[in-house]
Each structure stands twice: as C-alpha cells, then as structure tokens.
Design a binder for these strands. Structure first.
Length: 567
DNA sequence: CTCACTCGGATAGAAGTC
DNA sequence: GACTTCTATCCGAGTGAG
C-alpha cells in the first residue's frame, strides 16, 4: 500500500510548483508515512523545549471544539506496508545516500531527514497550528526546491486563496504566510477527521496541556518568570542551567530575536514555535539599570560565561540622576523608572501636577499624592524642581538605555523619543552577546534586522567586538542616518544599509552570504506596535500590520541558514 | 474584585517649505 | 497660498498579581 520512496521523492520533484493540490497530497502522503514511524520520530531532540503534549492527550477530532477530554484518538496504523517502508528508511546514512542519488545535496538531504525525524513533525498535528512552522517551512522548501523563497511557496500552494485574501483583506505577504499555515491546518485536519472516523480508539480522561483553538489564534499562554532575570544576570545567580538546542536551531549563524515580554496571550508561544521551539529568555532590564524594560529574547547563543559591560550602569534613579534627589518628595518612593516609551507626557500633565501640589499643603493629602504618583509612574516623570515633575530628556533616556551621549543629536526631539522608546537596552543585550567576544577574535559579520538606532551594534562595540560587516535593514531614514553617523565615527568595517526587510529576498541574501562568506550573527527585534499594551487602537497581535514583520525575520533567518548550508 | 503596568495611534493646529 | 512636516494633546484595554 505504501509508495516506494523513490516514487514519492521523484514525484515531488517533478510536480514542483505546477500542481499545488497534487503536491499537497504528496506531502500528506509522506506525512502519513511518517505518522506511523514511532521508532524514528519519538526521540527527544531538545532539553530546553517546553513539555510536548502527547498525541493521545491531544487528538480528539470529534470533540475538538469543546472541552470534553474523553474523545477518541487516532490509533497507530496497523498498515504493515507503511511500517516496512519506515523501517527501510530508519537508517540515516542509507536515506542520505538515496537522496543524494536523486540529486539532492548532502545538506539538503540531512535537513530533510532531520526535520522528518523531529518529534513534533512526526505527530498527527503536522499541518496544524501546533506543529512547528519552521518544520513546515523547511519541509516545503525542501520538497519544492531549495531555491524557492517563501512567497513562491505560498503562491504555489494556494495561489487563488492568496489572491483572494490579499484583495479582500489587504494583507501583507507574511500575514498570508501565516494564514496559509493555518489553512494547512484546516485541510490536514479535515483529512485526519475523516481518517479518525475509520480508526478510532477510546481513551480515558486526564488529558494534559493546552489545545490550540480552531480559529488559528493560539491561546497558549507563556508565564513570565519571577524575578524576570532570564537564564542568569549579574548578581542574580539562579540554578545553573544547561540547554540543548534542537539541531536545526544551532548556528551558524547565531541569531538573537527580541520583542516585548507582555505581548497578548499566545504571541510568545507562536514566536517560539517559529523559532525552533527555543525557550524565550525573559529579562526585565530593571535588574540591570534604573529603568524597567520587560523583554523576551530568543537566541541560540551559549548561556555560560557571560560577562556584563563595565562599569555596571546605575541601578536606581538616584544613582543615575543624583541631582533629582533634592526635589524628590518623600511620598514618591520610586527607585526605578518604568519602561521608557515612545510617547512623552504632554505639558498639561506636568502643569496639572504642579497646580495641584501648589494648592495643597505639605505633605499633600492622600488623594493628591495618589493622583501624582499615578501620573508620575504612568509618564515616567522625574522631580526637577519644587512641585515640578517633568519627563526625561532624550539624553537621559540614552544614558539609561546604555547609548553614548548624544547618540541621536541632530534629530527632532519627538523622533528621538520615538527611536529611543523602540530601542534595545544596551547593557542587557550586551550581556547576552558577551559570549561572542571569545568566539570571534577576528570580528563578526552581522545581519541586523530592524536595526533602529543600532542598539545591537552599540552593544557589540561596547563589548569590544569588532564588526567586520554589518548589513543593516532599517525602514526609518533618520535611524539609518544615526547609525551611519555613529558607524563612521567609531567603526572601520563595512556597513551596508537596506531600507525594507520585505525587499530583502533570497537571491540578495545569497549574494551577501557569498560575498562575506556567511553571517555570524542575525540580530533584530521586530516591531512591537501591535503587541504593546500602550497601543489602544491596533493591538492586533502578531498578525497586526507592523508586528507581522516578525515573519520576515523568520524568513530571512532561514534564508541565511539555507544559503550558508549551500556554501 | 482592585491595582499596576504597557518599545502607541489619531488628530488638529502650528510651523516650515516651495 | 498650497502643501508637507512637526508638535502637542488627546485617547483605554489586555493582562497578570494580589
């Protein structure tokens, strides 16, 4: 009943882009073969992955929409032809040789086999939301040809749907990508529902784990650690942790991804699934400097032997700004500032505070204190005079964020606030990147996405790591000028500036990879606009207009990995 | 339940540019 | 004077902790 493997692979190669339905059928066929391969697929590849929900806890097709955990599950296949085929495929070398005979490179064959051996990939939920998207991505890329880029994949898989969705919803490419992944879920799910009616086995209660919702919005929450110090921080020595990354997640290149920690529910779970199931490192920069900055970082860097930038930054408001102590009221007991944001308090806020305080006694009544404390916390105000609270100056924000003084001089004040609010906290990022210092004594080649004002570059510079090359992608012209200006003053390496991540396609990436011999680090934090709690209008999650650029980070990272694998 | 916190956005009007 | 750019001033909800 099973297909000879040569037929499967050859058919896939022949079908190529021309027939999406047939291709999907073949992929599903291949997956069906893999579904029953317990021996191959059930090994664990990662010591850091979150607990994986077992099949028998999760597959409940008839009752998918409700919370009844006593539904059926798909039994393991009793088809001896499949098992025979899979036993045949169990030897990795043999598989590689077979694939090489068919014209695939060893890297391509290795990648495909690695993917096919991954536990999640091997599960019934392959094309569902819960399946790791990077596996789907690699798998499709492999079967469609290694040079196909994501947009081509999407087009060939569901061209009519893409067109329809784009026209009717005005969606961007990455949103379409996400939806196509979702659409696979639907199709595969329908197929599996049909199969499950034939092969069903009852199982008892006690199901564990969260179930992805059917509308594609995964509600899986990811609890933030307390204290939010990541895997470790200077002065916060937790239990020593060693992590084993999935094979596909390891470098080269190293990568470093950043975004707001307090994103809407399910966002970090989704980001994690795209980025190789690596557990995010949540850090509040409050533990390293005088201002809070709760951020999640997903990276494949070593976590041992980190070292902070010296001198350590001031850790309290008074250490950072001693002169404000003079006017600081005793009933304002803040020692740290809240997150430095892009918007500053309007003059009306500070005027109202001054007016309220001057018209009340000393100390002011509790109600006034409460109001003023609230406004000061909300707008990050500091006491600059008697009864006078004021927003931080841009150079003070630069200082707290670890940038050199007047890094952004010459730019409008509003723009400076905006860029700084969107930036890295340099000391925090530098602490994570410090492990690169000993690894690249001759310098690093960096692909910097969503560069902003160059927080990652400044961090590397302050660590004393020479940047041989930085290919920087940043949409803001003012930010590009700031980086260029800083680069010309401090650096000797090559800086290439690109405006739009969407314009950075596979061929150009491959050109840079060939030109520079690859990248050592792919670093970037994609836009948080649609994730941040401050956004009252369009907190749309990862599919939002700006935040969906995360998918471009994912796309470009994989493109770099692919190009480097083919070097 | 209350409370605290959040890499923001839309708009009108001012200011600058041609 | 038309147009663009900049600036000030408004605008709650989602989430989690207690």
């Amino acid at each position: 009943m099973g297909f000879p493997k040569e037929m499967v692979v050859r058919s896939i190669k022949e079908i190529g882009h021309s027939d999406a339905e047939a291709l999907l059928e073949l992929l599903l066929t291949y997956k069906a073969l893999g579904d029953d391969d317990d021996a191959v697929g059930n090994h664990s590849t990662s010591g850091c992955n979150p607990p994986i929900v077992e099949d028998n806890d999760d597959l409940d097709f008839e009752n998918w929409n409700d919370d009844d955990d006593t539904g059926g599950r798909v039994s393991s296949s009793d088809d001896s032809g499949y098992e025979e085929f899979l036993r045949e495929m169990s030897d990795k070398d043999e598989k590689i040789n077979s694939l090489r005979d068919m014209g695939f490179s060893e890297d391509e064959a290795n990648m495909a086999i690695t993917i096919c051996g991954m536990p999640l990939f091997d599960r019934h939920s392959f094309f569902m939301e819960k399946a790791p998207p990077y596996a789907i991505y690699f798998c499709l890329k492999f079967f469609l040809g290694v040079d196909a880029d994501l947009s081509v994949l999407v087009d060939s898989i569901s061209a009519s749907q893409v067109t329809e969705v784009c026209h009717s919803r005005n969606l961007s490419d990455h949103q379409v990508t996400a939806r196509c992944f979702d659409s696979f879920g639907g199709r595969k799910r329908a197929r599996l529902i049909e199969e499950s009616k034939k092969k069903r086995k009852r199982y008892g209660g006690g199901a564990q784990g969260k179930r992805p919702s059917l509308d594609g919005s995964d509600e899986e929450s990811m609890p933030l650690p307390k204290p939010m110090v990541g895997f470790n921080l200077p002065g916060y020595r937790g239990p020593s942790m060693t992590r084993v990354l999935p094979e596909l997640a390891t470098g080269p290149p190293y990568f470093y991804y950043e975004n707001v920690a307090r994103a809407p529910k399910g966002v970090w779970a989704k980001i994690t699934r795209f980025l190789f199931d690596i557990q995010p490192e949540f850090v509040d920069s409050l533990h390293l400097c005088a201002a809070a900055r709760k951020r999640g970082y997903i990276h494949n860097l070593p976590t041992e032997n980190r070292s902070p930038l010296l001198p350590l930054p001031p850790k309290t408001i008074f250490e950072a700004f001693p002169h404000y102590k003079k006017w600081w009221p005793s009933w304002d007991q803040r020692t740290h500032l809240n997150c430095l944001q892009t918007c500053m308090a309007p003059a009306t806020v500070t005027e109202r505070i001054q007016q309220k305080l001057s018209s009340s006694g000393n100390p002011p009544p509790q109600s006034v204190q409460k109001y003023v404390r609230h406004e000061c916390s909300k707008w990050n105000l500091v006491w600059v005079g008697k009864d006078k609270a004021a927003p931080l100056e841009p150079h003070e924000m630069e200082y707290l964020l670890g940038f050199p003084k007047d890094h952004k001089r010459g730019v409008g004040k509003t723009q400076r606030y905006k860029s700084l609010g969107n930036s890295f906290q340099v000391d925090t990022v530098a602490y994570h990147l410090s492990v690169l210092r000993g690894m690249f004594p001759n310098g690093v080649r960096v692909l910097s996405l969503f560069t902003g004002i160059g927080g990652g570059e400044v961090a590397l510079h302050k660590l004393g790591i020479h940047m041989r090359v930085v290919v920087s992608v940043e949409i803001g012209e003012a930010n590009r000028q700031i980086l260029r200006s800083w680069w010309d003053q401090t650096q000797t390496g090559t800086l290439i500036e690109i405006a739009d991540v969407k314009s950075l396609k596979d061929d150009e990436i491959a050109t840079y990879v060939r030109r520079f011999g690859g990248f050592d680090l792919v670093i970037g934090g994609s836009p948080c606009n649609n994730l941040a709690g401050s956004n009252r209008h369009h907190r749309d999650g990862l599919e939002g207009e700006h935040s969906s650029l995360f998918y471009d980070y994912f796309r470009i990272l994989n493109s770099v990995k692919s190009a480097m694998a083919n070097m």
